[in-house]
Design a protein around this nucleic acid. Sequence first.
DNA 1: GCGACAG
DNA 2: ATCTTGTCGC
Length: 239
Amino acid sequence: MKVRRLHRWDLSPRAAIRLQERLRERLVLRGGPRSPRWIAAADASFDDRFVYGVAVLWDATRGEIVEVRTARRPLTFPYVPGLLSFREAPTLLDALRPLSRKPDLVLADGQGIAHPRGFGVACHLGLLLDLPTIGVAKSLLVGEHGALSRRAGAAVPLRFRGRQVGWAFRSRDGVKPLFVSPGHRVGLAAALRLARGIRRRFRLPDPIRAADSASRAFRRGNVARTITYALSVSGEASA
DNA sequence: GCGACAG
DNA sequence: ATCTTGTCGC
């Protein structure tokens, strides 16, 4: 699929922050696909020198991974809370670009608008892909929320500076909550509805789970094994 | 100045 | 994120 080139990536942290403040004005935080069939998820792993990215395409109708792509780039940007996309998005986009079908929804491992400047990695990917995107993070970056039932499916608003920016979402009974927020072309209500609708046999939604373990396998050396990992996580026999 | 801080 | 053995719990 096509990726818009709205800016360069070799920026200083200071310039990256200014860019986020400019790009966030272009976000569309409403709407969202009704019943997405094709869902893409991307995630990255790291070592001292490289970023290892994997994108998977999930067929929600059949409940399985139908395509896996990988990409590797040298590490060029440090980890700075709030600037995650400048570290891994170029690699994730390299992995997403060759997917043979345009997804109805993109899932990112990290925040959407639940971010200091309202522009987390899910927003960045969504804007450059011009696709509906939501962020699913395993821990909190900003904001606060009230008590949350331990029951799978439960959710409470996540607020930051007096505004709701997402949800604390209990994806499975008793597990630590996930933090779901809109990335682009999705509203708050739809972000939660979509997160609830994606199959999750573990804490993370299956597509993200698959991309996560596959990126780790990819970093550890073998592309064939990477694909096997993704497919096995999607429910196929690990043949 | 101090504490917080996605992956 | 990654480095790492055993260990508590369903």
